[in-house]
């Protein structure tokens, strides 16, 4: 499993690339920018990609992270890939519900369910 600074780990499986956020909170602007650079480079290197983002460790996020996720999802779609989110705790899921991003993102309970039915 590869470790990327500042705050993700990446696991390559047969069906998908699984990115786990390893920080409980991603707050600093520079960390968000670095995170976006890391994720974008993953997406762009791979071509069509099944990407799963695992939020199991994340206890706090702000709209800056939601913006990052939107940018990533657009890039994945341009590359004809698939993006799924999983492991989102109820408090953070509420943020997705309030912003109605539950309509935009394909959100799964955990990695096992996110892996099901991938192309």
């Amino acid at each position: 499993m590869a470790e990327l600074k500042p705050s993700i780990s990446v696991e390559y499986t047969e069906k998908a690339t699984i990115v786990r956020f390893t920080d409980r909170k991603i707050l600093e602007e520079r960390d968000i920018r670095a995170l976006q650079d890391s994720l974008m480079s993953l997406v762009e290197q791979a071509g069509p990609l099944n990407l799963i983002l695992d939020f199991s460790n994340v206890e706090f996020l702000s709209s800056a992270i939601l913006g990052l996720l939107i940018r990533i999802s657009k890039r994945v779609a341009e590359q004809k890939g698939t993006l799924r989110l999983c492991g989102i705790n109820p408090r953070i899921y509420e943020v997705f519900k309030i912003t109605q991003l539950t309509k935009v993102f394909d959100i799964h309970k955990d990695i096992d369910s996110a892996l099901k039915g991938l192309p």
Partner: peptide, 21 residues
């Protein structure tokens, strides 16, 4: 309103909605 269909995939503009919520 960032929840409207024409805005929902914008990367920004959700801060005020969250503050009010």
């Amino acid at each position: 309103d960032p929840r409207l269909e024409e805005n929902i995939t914008e990367a920004r503009g959700r801060g005020l909605l969250l503050i009010r919520a």
